[in-house]
Every structure is written in structure tokens, then in C-alpha cells.
Design a protein around this nucleic acid. Structure first.
Lengths: 182, 182
DNA sequence: AACGCCATGTAAGCAGTTACATGATTCA
DNA sequence: TGAATCATGTAACTGCTTACATGGCGTT
């Protein structure tokens, strides 16, 4: 129920087309909110109808790009949402279910799970490396004075802290899986 | 797409009724997979039709409780799923969106957000305290030899590590929010 | 008598995923 | 010539949430 709000924030940071939003949702915003282009186009249409955003036709690109910007009512909606309580997160941690499920797997199944956890660990290692590269590029040491910049940085630090925690925990998981049955 | 699997694991750990499952999804399993009773009943029915589980009628309770157990095909489904790659998590971190949105809020809106983050932090502090109490109760220091026990413990340690990380990050967030505009 | 817990469901609707579809531009 | 990228959608479906409904038992 907050894709609209994620879009509002993204469009305030930088107006853009549905396609551009979809690409941002694959990169920066996608770190904490995922969405496909189909969904984005549908929601953009509704937001435009409701008067939260307006579209400027941009000729030049071929199918005539529509660049969206947030207007008054959209800003109000965002302000109201910012004041509302944060909804408790709906947790969906598939790997945790699998680990508890390993108790009912045979030796071959457990070996396969160890390999899978290693692969999963490698992918998180890559994500962390990507974050650290981005941090070095976008947030050089003397902390900037720009509010927006500082807020983006603290969100990125959250992603970094999360990935480090996951990696440490996965090591714990691998030790545990390998030590099963004595 | 893995509620079925979470239910299979839970029923293997301990057979039970839809109602009991719903309560477990509020407590232990709910730490990493949420589900309401409506959804659970629907999925249980389908799983029974597909022959993954069977129900034993238990008289005594009033509306005649149906206690479910996993049978052969259900075990096979779980074993196959354990071998399949872990799906990348679909991230939904509302607070991160709000923090980036704070760049577009006025002073009053930011003050409200600080208060909300403090409330959110307190709720995570409670969750951590609950985990630590549960750990002391269910996993006393000499590590047990039971595989199932050790796997449940490593999952709980993951929850504990997550909550500690969140608390540290929220302190970082609060420092950042309070330090905005110099 | 009222409240909370045990126990099981139906119905409606919305959010999100997957598959399919189109067409122009740019680069190898 | 073909592949990748830009750009925008429709259609069908699945999963999940929210609201509503029923009824007995035990406790205060």
C-alpha cells in the first residue's frame, strides 16, 4: 500500500517517465521497495487521474515519453503519509524456513542446502560490494551539508549494515549445518 | 509461494489444527513468515486435496478440531523445495522510503518522523527482549545434540542479529534526522 | 450476563506477478 | 541484419488482506 509513496519520493527527487522509474526501482529505490514496470504504469495512471502528479509530453524519444512531476495534492498525500505510523513489516524470510526444514532432510538434501547457502552468501557479498562502491562514489568522506544527501546516505548505511549482518549470520548457519549429527 | 512449505515444516515439527498453526504463525514461525488464519485454512484445504497432508478428526474440543499431519507426497514436495534455489527476497522497507521522503517534509513533519522512529525503535527493542528471553528459556548454554534444536537456535540467532542491527541503525537514523539543517 | 478464547470458515476486493504485445532507435 | 535499449501498455491470474459470520466453552 505504499508503492504510490515510493513513487512520490522518487519523482520529488527527480521527475521522470514510467520507464525511468522502473529502472530506478531496479537500482536505488529497489533496495527497499520492488516494483515491475507493469505495476508502475498502472499506479502512475491512477495517480495522474487522482491529481497527485502531472505528465509533460516530451517529444524526441519515439513513443513520446511522458515525464511525471509531483503536484500540490501529491505533496499533501506524502506529508500525511510521513506522519502516519510505520506499518510493522510483513516478514518473508524463505531461507529461515528452509533451515528449519533441513531437520527433515536426508544427508544429500543437507549437502545441497549447504551449497545453496554458499551461493546465497556469495550473492549477498556482491550486493555489499556494490553498496560500498556506491558509497565511495556518492558519499566522499567530508559529510555533505545537503539534507537530501545525508538522508540518502543513512538509508544506504542501513543497507550496508543489513548485508554485513546477513553475511555474519550465514557463516553461523554454515557452521551449524556442517556440524549437524555431531 | 512458500506458505505451503512453511506449513509443511511446522506440521513436521508438530502436527496440529489450522487454529494452532495460526497461533504459531503469530509466534515462532511468524518471525520469518506471516499468515492469517483465513489464508491458512484455505491452503490447508488445498494441501489436503493434493494429498500432501491428512487430517485426523479430534473430538473433545467443540467444533471438532481437525489435526493435520504431513504424509509421503508432502515430504517429497518439501524435499524438492529444499533443493530449489532460494528466491531473492522481495524487499519492502517502508521506513527507508519515509526517511528519504523526509527531505521533502517541513520542520513539523520531521519532528513527527523523529517521534515515530523512536516509537518504532522501542517496538524493535521489545522484540529483541522477547527473543533473548526465549533463547535463555529454550536454548540453555551447553549446546544440545539435537539437530532440530540446533537449527531452530541458529534461526533465532538470525532474528537476534537482525534486531540488534536494526536498533543500531535506528540510532544512526535518529542522529541524522536530528542533525539536519546543520 | 459479558468477555475472551477455541475453532472453522465464506466473500469481496486489491496488490502484485507473469505472460504477451507493439514499435522505434541505436549500435555492432 | 539482428540484438539491445527505450518506451508503453493489456490480460489473466494468484496471493493476500479485510470484513463478516457462527457457535460452544470457561472465567469473571
Amino acid at each position: 500500500m505504499a508503492l504510490e509513496h515510493a513513487i512520490l519520493v522518487s519523482l520529488l527527487e527527480q521527475p521522470g517517465s514510467g520507464y525511468e522509474l522502473a529502472r530506478r526501482f531496479e537500482r536505488s529505490i529497489g533496495r527497499f521497495w520492488t516494483a515491475t514496470h507493469q505495476q508502475i504504469y498502472r499506479v502512475l495512471k491512477r495517480m495522474e487521474t487522482d491529481g497527485w502528479i502531472t505528465a509533460d509530453q516530451v517529444a524526441g524519444g519515439r513513443p513520446d515519453k511522458r515525464s511525471y512531476s509531483v503536484v500540490g495534492p501529491g505533496r499533501d498525500v506524502l506529508a500525511d503519509w510521513l506522519r502516519a505510523p510505520v506499518q510493522p513489516e510483513a516478514v518473508r524470510h524463505e531461507l529461515a524456513v528452509k533451515i528449519r526444514g533441513a531437520a527433515f532432510a536426508d544427508a544429500a538434501g543437507r549437502t545441497a542446502l549447504v551449497a545453496e547457502v554458499e551461493r546465497y552468501r556469495a550473492s549477498h557479498h556482491e550486493i555489499l560490494a556494490g553498496y560500498l562502491t556506491g558509497e565511495a562514489r556518492d558519499f566522499p568522506d567530508p559529510p555533505g551539508e545537503d539534507d537530501r544527501h545525508r538522508l540518502q546516505h543513512v538509508v544506504l548505511r542501513g543497507g550496508i549494515a543489513y548485508e554485513r549482518m546477513v553475511l555474519a549470520w550465514l557463516d553461523d548457519v554454515l557452521d551449524t549445518l556442517r556440524g549437524l549429527g555431531r
